[in-house]
Simulated assay, not measured.
Amino acid sequence: MNSPAVEPPWRAASLVFAGGAVGSLIRYGVSLAFPRDGLVPWDVVLVNTVGALLLGALVGWLGRAAGPTSSVRARHQRLLWGTGALGGFTTYSALALGAVDLVRDDRALAAMLLAVGSVAVGLAACGAGLALGSLAARGRARAS
């Protein structure tokens, strides 16, 4: 495969910016739909789990398109949807804040369960998404 032409840096930045705006707005909508009224910040758990699943599916679908030999379209899709939209949608900082708030409320065990459980569920969701995306990409390739 031929190496793609060097793109201006503003193109990649604009894709990340546009995707991040969309993802952040959706994330904000989820926080409005799931207001915090209990111990666990369910909105954070939800967006991080869904985001991990979708990122895995995207990467599986695109075939890990991030390197210099991947297609320009695949790199653009990963920047727009992966780095931008899903990066804006998911929120590690809110997870960390939720855990710290639990510690400050003398609920260290709940904080540890939130942090470790969220990472474990996210890993599982990402793995499932990667498998589903790869499977869908193989089906797409066979159909072509």
Results as ranks from 00 to 15, higher is better:
residue 23 G to W: 03
residue 21 A to M: 15
residue 27 R to P: 09
residue 16 V to R: 02
residue 45 V to Y: 04
residue 29 G to D: 07
residue 19 G to T: 11
residue 55 L to I: 11
residue 56 G to K: 12
residue 37 D to T: 15
residue 18 A to M: 10
residue 39 L to F: 10
residue 15 L to P: 04
residue 33 A to K: 12
residue 19 G to Y: 09
residue 17 F to R: 12
residue 38 G to D: 13
residue 22 V to W: 05
residue 34 F to E: 04
residue 17 F to A: 15
residue 40 V to F: 08
residue 40 V to S: 06
residue 36 R to L: 14
residue 45 V to H: 09
residue 49 T to M: 07
residue 41 P to T: 03
residue 31 S to T: 15
residue 47 V to K: 03
residue 17 F to V: 05
residue 29 G to C: 00
residue 53 L to E: 01
residue 33 A to E: 01
residue 51 G to A: 05
residue 50 V to K: 09
residue 22 V to F: 11
residue 52 A to F: 07
residue 20 G to I: 04
residue 28 Y to D: 14
residue 44 V to R: 12
residue 29 G to K: 08
residue 55 L to H: 06
residue 57 A to C: 07
residue 34 F to A: 13
residue 47 V to G: 08
residue 33 A to Q: 07
residue 50 V to H: 07
residue 57 A to H: 06
residue 45 V to W: 05
residue 42 W to T: 10
residue 55 L to Q: 10
residue 25 L to R: 10
residue 36 R to A: 14
residue 45 V to M: 09
residue 26 I to T: 07
residue 37 D to M: 08
residue 54 L to R: 08
residue 30 V to A: 02
residue 40 V to T: 14
residue 49 T to W: 02
residue 18 A to R: 04
residue 29 G to T: 00
residue 42 W to C: 14
residue 16 V to G: 13
residue 47 V to F: 06
residue 37 D to G: 15
residue 48 N to K: 14
residue 34 F to W: 15
residue 43 D to N: 14
residue 25 L to F: 08
residue 56 G to S: 03
residue 15 L to C: 11
residue 24 S to P: 08
residue 48 N to A: 00
residue 48 N to Q: 12
residue 41 P to K: 04
residue 57 A to L: 08
residue 46 L to I: 03
residue 28 Y to A: 12
residue 36 R to N: 11
residue 21 A to F: 13
residue 23 G to S: 04
residue 43 D to V: 02
residue 15 L to T: 02
residue 18 A to V: 15
residue 36 R to C: 03
residue 17 F to W: 12
residue 31 S to R: 15
residue 17 F to P: 05
residue 53 L to V: 08
residue 32 L to N: 09
residue 41 P to D: 00
residue 36 R to G: 01
residue 54 L to M: 13
residue 50 V to G: 02
residue 26 I to P: 01
residue 39 L to Q: 13
residue 22 V to P: 00
residue 37 D to L: 08
residue 35 P to W: 01
residue 44 V to M: 09
residue 49 T to C: 08
residue 47 V to H: 07
residue 21 A to S: 14
residue 38 G to N: 12
residue 23 G to Y: 08
residue 27 R to M: 12
residue 17 F to D: 07
residue 53 L to S: 00
residue 28 Y to E: 13
residue 35 P to M: 02
residue 30 V to Y: 11
residue 32 L to G: 05
residue 17 F to Y: 12
residue 49 T to K: 02
residue 51 G to F: 13
residue 15 L to A: 05
residue 36 R to K: 15
residue 17 F to Q: 05
residue 27 R to E: 03
residue 19 G to I: 09
residue 46 L to D: 03
residue 22 V to D: 02
residue 50 V to T: 05
residue 48 N to S: 11
residue 29 G to S: 05
residue 18 A to N: 03
residue 36 R to Y: 04
residue 41 P to A: 02
residue 53 L to W: 08
residue 30 V to F: 09
residue 30 V to S: 04
residue 39 L to H: 00
residue 22 V to K: 04
residue 57 A to V: 00
residue 25 L to C: 14
residue 32 L to I: 11
residue 43 D to L: 05
residue 20 G to K: 10
residue 51 G to D: 01
residue 46 L to P: 03
residue 57 A to Q: 04
residue 51 G to P: 04
residue 18 A to H: 08
residue 29 G to N: 05
residue 50 V to M: 06
residue 41 P to Q: 01
residue 33 A to W: 06
residue 54 L to Y: 01
residue 50 V to F: 04
residue 38 G to C: 07
residue 47 V to L: 11
residue 32 L to S: 09
